[in-house]
């Protein structure tokens, strides 16, 4: 009984993580510009990978490897949003303009393209 609940919990967490990855990748492919895409992808990194790893940690139980996976989750939760932030900030600082509804189907322009700046 306990075993079944344990396995079920692990399955739920891993599948939820995979679902986040799916949604994040869908966003990466479908969103119109850099900022919206990175918005989608950072969720997939932090939550998707975090949930999958949490599932694995629970599957291993409280032995050495489980604790190591928990440490990995902590590292992931610190580093992944930071990387997203740094990327978005770099794009903004080099003059990439966010997509607006007026842009229609047009994609964002190449970062650092001075002629497009205000």
């Amino acid at each position: 009984m306990i075993d079944a609940a344990h396995a079920l919990l692990v399955c739920f967490l891993v599948i939820a993580g995979a679902a986040f990855f799916f949604i994040g990748t869908l966003g990466l492919l479908r969103f119109p510009d850099f900022y919206t895409r990175i918005h989608a992808v950072t969720k997939c990194d932090a939550l998707g990978a975090g949930l999958v790893l949490l599932g694995l940690a629970i599957w291993r139980g409280p032995d050495g490897e489980g604790v190591r996976i928990l440490a990995l989750i902590a590292l992931l939760l610190i580093s992944s949003p930071t990387a997203g932030h740094a990327l978005a900030r770099a794009a903004f600082r080099t003059g990439l303009k966010p997509w607006t509804r007026n842009d229609g189907e047009r994609d964002g322009e190449i970062p650092g393209d001075a002629s497009e700046r205000d």
Binding site: L75, I78, S79, T82, H85, A86, R89, R93
Partner: peptide, 14 residues
């Protein structure tokens, strides 16, 4: 461009 305070903090932390 000065480094972002977030990146700065995280790198010093890690």
């Amino acid at each position: 461009v000065p480094p972002s305070p977030v990146v700065d903090y995280v790198i010093r932390l890690l």
